[in-house]
Amino acid sequence: MDRLFAACGGLAAFFLAAICVLVLAQVVGRLMGVAIPSADEFAGYCLSASSFLALGYALRKNHHIRVTLLLDRLPRARRRVAEALCVVGGLAVSLFITVNTAEMVYYSVTFGDLTQGLVPIPLWIPQSGMMIGVTVLTLAFLADALRMLRGLDPVYLSGGPGRDTDVSQEV
């Protein structure tokens, strides 16, 4: 399971680097008098893929922002109840997003929609990055919900913000 989230995180990082390469190619191409067709559009699709594919990875690393001021003051038992509510809520909302994204991609396939830029490609291809990303986020919440049923703490609680860097230790 952990490998799935890490792999998606790595893929997201790859797409982030791809944005940079595409944009640079466009700049260099223009200097040499060559237009790279749809470079800006594809950079946008890479951005979308990067943002969504990282969702599950970012949740487990606790990158996603929340306000814990009140939660931190709760006694341990109540804190667990509150975290359980959050995980269930997160599962519900991310499932809702996933189902509707699936429907959107399904329509893109059945309508045969194409992208509107210079290089037409089937719309479902760039949209599938979003589809996979929100599905993985749902799985991440599901995994945490199952952990809580077994009496464990959700994974995101152990990966604090900045804890994979040294910033928080220095502050």
């Binding site: 509707n100 994204t101 959107m104 949209q127």
Partner: peptide, 20 residues
């Protein structure tokens, strides 16, 4: 449906590519 369409539309906007 509105959620999916708007999130998708927002996610690939060119001017946001500068942010990451």
């Amino acid at each position: 449906a509105i959620l999916a369409t708007t999130s998708w539309g927002q996610s690939w906007s060119w001017s946001l590519t500068a942010l990451p």
